[in-house]
Simulated scan of single mutants.
Amino acid sequence: MRVAGVDAGLNAFAGLKADAEIKGAIEWRNPEDKKKAFEAFANVAPAVAGLAGIGGNAKLTVQYVDGVFKVHADAGLCVGLGAEGKLSFEVNVKLLLKFIKWLFYQLYHANFKRLDYIQESAFNAARDLAYLAISLGESVEKRFGMAADKLTVKVREVNAMFDEAEERQRLAQRILSDPEALRYAPPETKGMLIHQLCNDGNIDWAKSGFGLGDNFLRDQKLAIQYILRRWSHTRTDCRNVIQHMTANGRKGNYEENMARLQRFFREEAPFNRDLPGVDSRHGEDFDAWYNQLTAMLMDEPTRGFPIMPSDSIQYAMQRDAGMDHPLFASTGDRAFYA
């Protein structure tokens, strides 16, 4: 991590005086950049204030305040040894997608475990922004500046929308038709989507073409498999997705949610009727399909490499090599930084 565009005068910026005039950006080396160049994901905040709630020992903290992602870092961490105080950065609308990508890679490199420097406010906002964008088929920038409580209200409105069978069908078709929409979605977002796709009001079959057997709720089942098969980056990621199959992405019970998936994939007719002579391969094959999926997923991420769909040849090559990028664990100007 480094600050670009900050001159030597910053070294006098001890204690971060409120009237200090500094410019710059916080950057990272994006694994997806073929030139391995640094790129910004947040700019120095115009007012170096508002560090309430940041612990004095925290080297790096990410918050969501008043509809904006804020990154606070030790000056020494960004500028070099000898600098004092903290620097505050903000993510503007032009950098929002780059910030979302950066945040996702932090989760990926940690194998989707909790990161103390990403505060709950920031993680919840990233989760909800991704959910709204995918659910509504819109860009994540559309919700830029929306306060956390407004995001929560909007998520509830979208969840209420999915009470309608037609909307669940549209969600399934949207996911199947947009292969990149879930690339940077955290496990919690994917769990929220699968929660909605698993809902069956017994009218869904009529809205989906009166399919029975293999064709019963076919798009919804295919969309769930698509989420798990293509965008589960590691076994931990896949397990977290299933564990967070709830309306708001909160942690649930893995075994109970797996049983829910198994029941859903076994359904072959409305009201879960068993039709003589009509079977659903989706249900019969789900356990074998899931076991095969988890067997081919990585145990650990290949840090420093670009993420790839888990059903791709590139993913298999990274998995089989089983190593981090040589620059990821190195130091100096050529290193990757988590």
Rank of each mutant, 00 (worst) to 15 (best):
I118M: 03
S139R: 11
M308P: 02
K34W: 07
F210N: 11
R235P: 02
K142E: 11
T234Y: 05
L193M: 06
R273S: 10
L261F: 07
V155R: 07
L171D: 02
S177R: 11
M146G: 04
A165T: 10
D200W: 09
A160G: 06
T246E: 13
G50F: 08
A73D: 02
F41P: 00
L136E: 15
D163P: 02
S121C: 04
D116C: 04
P31E: 00
Q173R: 12
V48A: 14
M192F: 07
K101E: 02
Q318V: 04
L275A: 03
T152S: 15
M317P: 00
A52C: 03
M258Y: 12
F328K: 01
D287V: 10
M1V: 10
R2S: 11
F305C: 05
Y254V: 08
I26E: 00
L176F: 10
L261E: 02
E255Q: 12
D285H: 09
Q169F: 09
P186A: 13
F104K: 01
N215Q: 12
M1H: 10
Q63E: 13
T152I: 08
A83C: 09
F210V: 05
V79A: 15
N124C: 05
L222A: 14
A110T: 03
P306C: 07
A73V: 03
E167S: 14
L103Q: 10
Q169C: 10
N159L: 11
A83P: 01
E157M: 12
D214P: 00
R266E: 13
L222K: 14
T61E: 14
L132C: 09
V68K: 15
A47D: 12
E300I: 03
V71S: 01
M323L: 10
V91P: 00
N43F: 08
R218C: 06
S232M: 04
Y315A: 03
Q225L: 12
F69R: 01
F13Y: 14
Q173N: 14
A37E: 13
V79H: 02
M161H: 09
R143Q: 11
I242L: 14
R235I: 05
E90H: 08
V140C: 10
R2K: 13
E84A: 14
I242C: 04
E188F: 05
F99W: 02
Y337V: 11
R263Y: 10
N257D: 06
Y64Q: 00
L81D: 13
F265I: 02
G249Y: 06
I54P: 01
K17T: 09
A130C: 08
Q225V: 05
K154I: 04
T189W: 03
G24Y: 00
A223G: 09
A181Y: 06
C78A: 15
V153A: 15
Y226F: 15
A335K: 06
